[in-house]
Design a protein around this nucleic acid. Sequence first.
DNA 1: TAGATTGTTAATCGATTAACAATC
DNA 2: TAGATTGTTAATCGATTAACAATC
Lengths: 207, 207
Amino acid sequence: MGKVPKISEAVVRRLPIYLRYLTNLQELQVKTVSSQQMGKTMDINPAQIRKDLSAFGDFGKKGIGYDVDYLIEKIRHILKLDQVIHVALVGAGNLGQAISNYNVYLKDNMKIVSIFDADPQKIGKDLGGLVIEPIDKMEDIIKEKQIRMAIITTPSSAAQEVANKLIEAGIEAILNFAPTTIRTEKEVKIDHNDLTSSLQSLAYYLN
Amino acid sequence: MGKVPKISEAVVRRLPIYLRYLTNLQELQVKTVSSQQMGKTMDINPAQIRKDLSAFGDFGKKGIGYDVDYLIEKIRHILKLDQVIHVALVGAGNLGQAISNYNVYLKDNMKIVSIFDADPQKIGKDLGGLVIEPIDKMEDIIKEKQIRMAIITTPSSAAQEVANKLIEAGIEAILNFAPTTIRTEKEVKIDHNDLTSSLQSLAYYLN
DNA sequence: TAGATTGTTAATCGATTAACAATC
DNA sequence: TAGATTGTTAATCGATTAACAATC
């Protein structure tokens, strides 16, 4: 059914995994794949894959499986990767510098188009082909370049204020690497990705 | 009850968030905190916080709340952060270099003690005070330095093989940044942290 | 056709939240 | 004591999985 019911975050987190795997298959000239095969490689229950996908439409063929090219196209559309998405990077420290190099991997029309930092020493310097801009100019540049997503790699102390400014400027989604919880009243999606927390959680499983 | 029932991953992911917040309070000389206050700052339901903590023991005082110092000590113990944990970093590319600088933040006795790379050009070079070692020496060094956790920042193509070697050498938990699913038959905890997937998931929430 | 595989329902499993007795 | 807050039970909500009719 072409209906779109409420989609859980868990489903949305799996879609990029499916997409990546399907793209691998595409490169190998594979034309068709079953949920069984997909599940085996990705370590995901085949029933779950079918259920996830069926929430967006009837993409498969009974007795056959899924057409790789077609499914890629559909998932890309669902994830809005069939449109150009401009991304801002805030914080040109070690992690920010590393991430600025990810532009190469962010095909799919997603692209870091601006980098901001508060440090006067860094402003004006080049990073991955982009000039580091001051935070003051953030709002103007975001509007001018129609930037819709942002990655925060500032220190914790600056993260909330930077987020406030980003949201004020109209940013719709934020990926936060600073080890602090960012809150907002607005309808903005915020994803926290904190290395220290990840490592600490992992430590629980030692022994 | 001092009993430890089965703990879900969701709980384990929240513990470092609690720990970080409590450490902030400690620095502010705050002695006591209620689940209500905690929940407000961290955007987590107070009942959930109480339930999470009560799975490990009776840490609070009715009518009072939680003693900050005591709760920090308890959570650190639960997460095994009260013991020294040696970490290996595999892949000295952009991301690996950025992460090697995180040693500063990884107080709590967690420490990157070795860095490995396959590129002969990089081997022998210094990174954050550590000499980059060849993958060949990985197994020996892991055993020698009693390394128990690893961070993979290699290209996707190398990730599974690196993981196999790490597991072979006795690594107990892996944080994988390579954009590929790592699988194993062994009892090893693997956490996937893929920037591209995170950004793609976020794109779903645009508009 | 016979075999394979989807889409979907129903069952199960697990996680979150509300509510409140216990008690500091 | 009166007010506050925990620990925990029960209710709710949501996500995963098994099973199978439909059908390619």
